[in-house]
């Protein structure tokens, strides 16, 4: 088996690492876009009178559709409908972002709503303006409370990214499946790639947990 390991995994280590890089790339931009969209949608939902229903519909849609369905929809329908994305990678990034933005919008919302009203009132009583209150009091606390959930979403994005291979994005999963189909020897490749994904995701969610415990213990914040 070690021999096989060499033949299939290490011989192809180059294409596997390329795939890993593509995975990281897509996940990174997907996360960034997800945070941006999630934040916007959250604020619209909370503070903008008429458009909040659009935001709610958006959030519900993003959370209710499976990632694969979103992926296929963005990849096959959007170019015709909206003119973009023009590449499969773009479609992958957008689809991952859609999925996570829904969840993040809700996370942001519970973070903001969970802030004790008293903190804001104290700021108002001291004569602080609304923007100042938001930036100096609300945002820092909300950011800390949400950090573990945010990190958890990274893990979710990586897990979902395994599906972008379906629209021919050459990520880690794509490369692994390509090698398996080429050589018909799935054991070493799939197990190695599977373990790699597991270790990556496990490390990230462990970090999230430790962070959450740390915040809870030191600052009394509950995620």
């Amino acid at each position: 088996m070690i021999d096989n390991l060499n033949r299939f995994v290490f011989a192809n280590i180059d294409s596997l690492l390329n795939g890993l890089w593509v995975t990281v790339y897509v996940c990174f931009w997907g996360l960034l876009l997800a945070v941006a969209l999630g934040l916007v949608m959250c604020l619209v939902r909370l503070y903008v009178p008429v458009l909040r229903y659009v935001a709610i519909a958006y959030i519900e849609f993003c959370r209710a559709t499976p990632i694969l369905v979103q992926l296929l929809w963005v990849n096959y329908v959007w170019p015709d409908l909206f003119g973009f994305p023009s590449s499969v990678v773009g479609a992958g990034i957008i689809a991952l972002a859609l999925q996570s933005s829904g969840y993040l919008a809700e996370t942001f919302r519970s973070g903001i709503e969970g802030l004790p009203k008293g903190h804001v009132e104290a700021g108002v009583a001291l004569g602080m303006g609304p923007v100042q209150i938001f930036i100096r009091i609300v945002l820092p606390q909300v950011a800390l409370v949400m950090a573990p959930s945010l990190i958890n979403q990274i893990a979710v994005i990586i897990k979902s990214s395994t599906l972008i291979s379906v629209i021919a994005i050459p990520d880690l999963m794509y490369e692994a499946l390509r090698i398996v189909n080429q050589w018909f020897e799935p054991i070493e490749i799939l197990t190695s790639v599977g373990l790699l994904y597991f270790i990556l995701i496990f490390a990230i969610s462990m970090t999230a947990n430790q962070l959450a415990q740390f915040f809870n213990r030191k600052l009394g914040l509950v995620a």
């Binding site: 897990k159 979902s160 395994t162 799935p186 054991i187 599977g194 994904y197 969610s205």
Partner: peptide, 22 residues
């Protein structure tokens, strides 16, 4: 439980489909 919570479902699906029979 940690293993199965942190492994992508698609990876498990492919793994079971290809490797379990062997």
């Amino acid at each position: 439980s940690e293993f199965f919570r942190n492994t992508p479902e698609y990876v498990l699906l492919v793994w079971v489909y290809y490797i379990m029979p062997i």
